[in-house]
Each structure stands twice: as C-alpha cells, then as structure tokens.
C-alpha cells in the first residue's frame, strides 16, 4: 500500500467517520431532522411544554 493510497484512505475514513459521528450525535440529541424548525424534541421531563431558549 503506497503513500497515495494511504492518503486517499485517510480522507475517506475522516469523511465517513465524521458522518458516522454526526449521525450518532443526532440520535443522541433527538435531533433527527437537521434544518427543520420543528426539530427540537430534547425536552426537559420529556414534555415539550418546558422548552426553554438560552438567554441571549
């Protein structure tokens, strides 16, 4: 396996790994629908009624 191959392989691993990580994060944060404004379901007490925005 030469250097070029290693390089390309590395790129692929980074990209795919990054993707896998992002998918993992989105599952963990219950954020399955990225850009959607209705996305957030990470609710305190599991009830959307307690949704709070961060103080800006």
């Amino acid at each position: 396996m030469n250097l070029a191959t290693l390089f390309v392989l590395l790129i692929i691993v980074l990209i795919v790994g990054g993707a896998a990580y992002r998918v993992y994060r989105s599952i963990r944060d219950h954020d399955t629908c990225y850009g959607c404004s209705a996305k957030c379901s990470d609710c305190k007490d599991g009830n959307p009624i307690n949704c709070t925005f961060e103080k800006k």
């Binding site: 990209i15 795919v16 993707a19 896998a20 992002r22 998918v23 989105s26 629908c33 990225y34 850009g35 959607c36």
Partner: peptide, 15 residues
C-alpha cells in the same frame, strides 16, 4: 430546507 438536505447528504446518505 436546503441546509437540511445538504446535511442529510453529508451524513446518512454518505454512510
């Protein structure tokens, strides 16, 4: 919506 589509492309679809 476009951003959501791109993110989807870069993650689930890529995998």
């Amino acid at each position: 919506k476009s951003w959501s589509f791109i993110k989807n492309a870069g993650t689930i679809i890529l995998l």
